[in-house]
Amino acid sequence: MNCTAARALLPEHALGVAGARETVAVERHVAWCAACRKESADLERAAVTLAYAPAPAEPAPGLEGTVVDAVRRVAAPNGTRGAYAGRARRTATTLLAAALVLAVMGGAVLATREPPAVPVVVAEKDKDSLDKFFTSVVNYGFADPDAEAALGSLMPPAEATAGETPAAGSALTIMAPSVDDQVMVIVTGLRPARRLMPYRVVLVDGRGDVVRVGRIGLLDAAGGATLARSLPDDLIGYRHVEVLDARSRLVLVGELEERTTLPSPSP
């Protein structure tokens, strides 16, 4: 997104009515562009002024206690999880294990393919992203005990003709309140046909909101690629993963599951 496009979206973004995709695009842009970041901050401060316009209304006396109890429940290290049931805290070991499992899952898929597997070739432009991803994983573990991971396999959709699509893959999201959330997708067996590329990877939440992870425009000899991205979105709830070809046909699909314990990375 360039500055002109970003500026056109900033008022809606500030007013909280930009769509999910626009929000992702704007936030990515303002994280990079200082001038647009300043404009965005100015408009957001203006918008929040309006929050106080409604006539003050007195909440029920019991609401304070309800709020305090709710926050105390989720903040308690061993307390009940209330509204955030299931969001277990993660440890460094767990997160690193998640990343390693994903890598092994991707490797295992490659290892079973014929002709004999070749090493995963990460597209040049993604190497930095991958390095940053693993750096983040390591850093999360020590800096943010609240980081969480969700992991899942990607398979061709049920309607795919048997034998037509030998593709497979794995996906991992890591969500931490202190830094941008991360997503990593490893695929293999994608067809390198020009008419099918680039492939697109998206995450979808329960409401149908979509976060675009990125495009795969370069495949290795086994039709594999690795995509790693740092996203400004909060990826909590984005559990459905889709890989689509250039014709928007679903190639791979999968559901991510929150992992409190991870299987051994051994094959």
């Binding site: 409604p54 006539a55 003050p56 209304a57 909440p59 309800t66 709710a70 209330g82």
Partner: peptide, 26 residues
């Protein structure tokens, strides 16, 4: 109170405003 007031204005009911207030703090 500001959060609740805004919730009441936007969502139109006390119940929704109370839920919003709780969600905001969480």
């Amino acid at each position: 109170r500001p959060v609740y007031s805004m919730g009441l204005r936007l969502l139109g009911s006390r119940e929704a405003a109370e839920e919003l207030t709780q969600d905001v703090f969480l």
